Each structure stands twice: as structure tokens, then as C-alpha cells.
Amino acid sequence: MPKYSSALIVGTGPGLSASLARLFARNGLSVALAARETGKLAALAKETGASVHACNAADPKDVAGLFETLDAAGRTPDVVVYNASNRVRGALVDLPPDDVRRAIEISAFGAFLVSQQAVKRMLPRGEGAVLLSGATAGVKGFALSASFAMGKFALRGLAQSMARELSPKGIHVAHFVIDGGIRSAARPVPDDKPDSLLDPDAIAETYWHVLHQHRSAWSWEVEVRPWVEKF
């Protein structure tokens, strides 16, 4: 199994991405955090020793520049996590087309751009990992959520195609179906429903396990959901 040393997390916020950054840092990986808005990442960066980078994940020039910056700093990532997503909710006939386009660009096209830059660097080494964060919407489209379903279905298709192409070349591609709500300060677990929301630290542990699977038993997709979640 490869020994990973440097991680990039794109779409960093206070939930799963923060849990992953802490877990990676505790296990000795250098961490880079990328987000469109970086103002709220100072505390996490200080805690984890991470570098912080402003990046519009749906902009090819921004994404290429992000990887070039990491290359120049000697921090080319061998683990890349894509957590960015966007949605606009509403009845189909009421959805603003420009908002829908933007949502799909962030959820899916950005994942393609980041994965492309990552894989270009991983192929010569014959190893690396690309971990893509999906959602229930990637396997089941809900009413009033067309843009999110389109973006997450596309992300899942990207992951499946990449896994089939790149696994034989030593690159582990995995897609995670986050099937349920994630616990946060703004969304605490109800007292009468213990563990009914996903613990971001627990999700991060699952990513870590998949990252360290032996290549004779790689997963390309893993679902995680609370024990009481209907599916």
C-alpha cells in the first residue's frame, strides 16, 4: 500500500472537510485547504498546520493555478478530496437556469477539473487517491432538487468512470454516498433521536479506512448513513 504524505481538500468548510483535515494532520500528512471563500479557515489552518488557498473549483485556470502553487511549494498532493457542491431548490419551472448551471458546475464540473489536475500528477508515480464526496441525491433524485440531483449523479458517473480507467494504473478512486444529514453546530442531534445525524468525525474515519485499503480489495463506492436513516 502507498504511504500518503500530502492531502488537498477542495471545498473546505466546518463539517466533514474540517474533520478530514484534522484526521490527516494527526496522521502526519501535510494538508492544503482550498475554498472559494477562505475567511473562515484561519482557525482550522492554525490547528492543522494547513496551507489555505482561494480557488473557484469550477474555473479551469483557478484549479490549474492551485496545483501549480502546491507543486512550487513541494506539496503536490497524493490524496485529493473533492467536497465542493452547490444546489438551488425549487419547482422545476421556477429554477433560474443560470443558478442551475452554476450548481452543476460546482458539484460536477469542478470535480472533473480537480481530478484531472490531480491525476496528471499521480499517473507518472503510479499511485495516489482521489476521494469524491457524493450524496443521497446521486442515487435518488428528490422532488424540488433537480440541480442537486443532476450534479451529484454526474459526480457519481465521473467517479465510476475514473475508477475503471485509473485503478489498473495504481490510482484509487472512491465515491462516498453521504446518505443523511451531517451533524453540525447549526444542526445538532435531537435529544430524542441519538445518532440520527452523521458524525463528521465518523465519516472521516471511513474515508481514512478506504484510503488505506489493500489494492487487492479496493472499494470504488461506499455508503454511510445513520442507523435509523430510511433507504
Rank of each mutant, 00 (worst) to 15 (best):
M150I: 00
N83D: 13
A57Q: 14
A42F: 01
R183P: 03
L158A: 09
D59A: 13
V79E: 08
V80S: 00
Q116G: 06
A72G: 15
V114D: 13
M122V: 00
D98L: 10
A7Y: 03
R36F: 04
L23R: 02
V130G: 07
S5D: 15
S216W: 07
Y82Q: 04
L66I: 02
F176T: 14
V222C: 10
F109Q: 12
G110P: 07
S216G: 12
A34K: 02
D94I: 01
A146C: 03
L155R: 06
V222R: 12
E221K: 11
N27F: 03
Q116F: 10
L41F: 06
V10W: 04
M1D: 14
W208P: 09
D192P: 08
A154V: 05
D94Q: 12
A54F: 05
K152R: 08
A137E: 09
D71S: 14
A159F: 07
E205A: 15
R87G: 12
S5K: 14
W208I: 05
V100P: 07
Q213D: 14
G128N: 09
L41C: 05
V100T: 11
A64I: 06
L131V: 04
I178T: 01
S133V: 13
K120H: 08
H209Q: 15
T136C: 03
R101H: 13
N86G: 13
A204R: 07
F24D: 01
I171G: 06
V228G: 13
A143V: 08
P96Q: 05
S145G: 09
A18L: 04
R102F: 10
A135Q: 10
P96A: 10
V80N: 00
W208T: 12
A111N: 07
L8S: 11
L144K: 09
A111H: 06
A137D: 10
G141R: 01
G128R: 05
H214E: 13
R121K: 04
R183N: 10
F148H: 15
E229K: 15
S161H: 08
D191P: 07
P226V: 02
I178V: 14
R215V: 09
P124Q: 02
A84C: 06
V130T: 05
E127H: 11
R22I: 00
A118L: 05
G134P: 03
W218T: 11
V31I: 00
S51T: 08
L155A: 07
R102C: 03
R121S: 01
R26Y: 00
A72M: 03
G65S: 11
L70P: 11
V88L: 07
R26W: 00
P188R: 06
A204M: 08
R22Y: 00
V177R: 13
A202C: 04
A163P: 11
G39S: 07
A35M: 07
L20P: 08
I106H: 11
H172K: 13
T69W: 12
H53D: 12
E229Q: 15
P200R: 02
V189W: 05
A21F: 00
K61S: 15
N86I: 02
F231T: 15
F109S: 08
D199P: 03
S17E: 04
K3F: 08
G126K: 01
K46C: 05
G126L: 02
D94S: 13
D179A: 14
I203Q: 12
G126N: 02
E165M: 08
R164L: 09
A143P: 11
K152C: 02
E37T: 13
L23W: 00
L92E: 08
G141V: 01
R215E: 15
